[in-house]
Computed example of a mutant assay.
Amino acid sequence: MTAPAPALATAAAASLAEPPARFRDLIASEWIKMRSLRSTPWTLALITLFVIGSAAVATLADKAAGSEPADFLAYDAYPSTGYMTLILVAGTMGALTVVNEYSSGLIRTTTVAVPDRGTVVLAKAVVTAVLWTVVGTAASIGSFLVSQAILEGHGAGVAITHPDVLRPLVASALLAPVCALVGLGLGVLLRHTAGTMLTSVFALLMLPTMFSESNRWSADAKHTMVSAAWTRLVMTWEPDPGSLGYTATLPGSWIVYALWPLVAVALAVIVVRHRDV
């Protein structure tokens, strides 16, 4: 007995169908997409050099060479100029990881090949996190080494084994992947280049400046921001509550570091699974 033609076609298609993509295959695919952009290596190299250079400039400009050695860590090794710029670039590049695909239409090809859109977002998040952790670590260690080499001539340098070094170094290294993942999550949620860029800049850089630490509610709001958490984590001294108002706690600042990227990526995965491309 001969089977109907549609049944034969279905069976043939099933036999020729490729197995579902493995997660490591998705990671490899996202890595190829990212490194194939000519602007990516140039951007990563330039922002790393800029952050390290800003530490060198801040250290050379610092005239208070008689202070305690550890006091130089926050102001010289991790100056706000370099790291606020790092926040901007990391958040923007993280967003572009997604919005470029939406603007070019490549996302349709991606979702046809991998129907599970949430897994695609997770693969993008893994690649983004790893890449920017490497960049952030290079910038953080480079900033520290350059600044301390300059300060060594003034007798104010500290070794990387100094007890006050680890927390600022780790916090500065993780700042880049945290902001990149927030940008990626916003890119999935908004899917529009200009809107995502503006939202990322506002959330990561502009919003914290609208709050102060002079009263409790404003301080609590500010302490939930990534840049404020980084500022607290790089401080190598215990602030005086009487002079600085309400100050964030160290555990609270680490929680802020963890929650922002987790919430951004989780929302992106949930939303992308419940809407059309």
Results as ranks from 00 to 15, higher is better:
residue 4 P to V: 04
residue 12 A to P: 06
residue 35 R to K: 06
residue 37 L to W: 04
residue 39 S to L: 11
residue 41 P to I: 00
residue 41 P to N: 03
residue 42 W to L: 12
residue 47 I to E: 06
residue 47 I to Q: 03
residue 47 I to L: 10
residue 49 L to I: 06
residue 54 S to M: 00
residue 55 A to T: 09
residue 56 A to Y: 01
residue 58 A to Y: 04
residue 61 A to C: 02
residue 64 A to Q: 07
residue 64 A to R: 14
residue 68 E to C: 11
residue 77 A to I: 02
residue 84 M to W: 15
residue 85 T to Y: 06
residue 90 A to Q: 01
residue 91 G to T: 01
residue 92 T to L: 12
residue 93 M to P: 08
residue 95 A to V: 06
residue 100 N to F: 09
residue 100 N to E: 13
residue 101 E to C: 15
residue 101 E to D: 00
residue 102 Y to D: 03
residue 105 G to Q: 09
residue 109 T to N: 09
residue 111 T to W: 15
residue 111 T to L: 10
residue 112 V to L: 01
residue 115 P to G: 05
residue 115 P to Q: 02
residue 116 D to K: 09
residue 117 R to V: 00
residue 118 G to S: 07
residue 119 T to G: 13
residue 121 V to E: 13
residue 126 V to F: 11
residue 130 V to F: 07
residue 133 T to E: 10
residue 134 V to R: 14
residue 134 V to C: 14
residue 137 T to H: 12
residue 137 T to W: 08
residue 142 G to T: 02
residue 142 G to E: 07
residue 143 S to N: 11
residue 151 L to R: 12
residue 153 G to L: 03
residue 161 T to G: 12
residue 163 P to K: 02
residue 166 L to Y: 07
residue 167 R to N: 06
residue 167 R to C: 13
residue 168 P to W: 08
residue 171 A to G: 02
residue 174 L to V: 13
residue 180 A to Q: 00
residue 186 L to T: 12
residue 187 G to C: 01
residue 190 L to V: 11
residue 191 R to W: 01
residue 193 T to E: 10
residue 197 M to Q: 14
residue 198 L to A: 10
residue 200 S to V: 13
residue 201 V to C: 04
residue 209 T to M: 08
residue 212 S to T: 03
residue 212 S to R: 07
residue 214 S to G: 15
residue 220 D to G: 03
residue 221 A to V: 08
residue 229 A to W: 07
residue 229 A to R: 00
residue 232 R to I: 05
residue 235 M to P: 06
residue 240 D to K: 10
residue 241 P to Q: 08
residue 245 G to C: 01
residue 250 L to K: 05
residue 250 L to Y: 12
residue 256 V to E: 02
residue 260 W to L: 14
residue 260 W to E: 04
residue 264 A to P: 03
residue 271 V to A: 13
residue 274 H to Y: 13
residue 275 R to D: 04
residue 275 R to T: 00
residue 277 V to P: 04
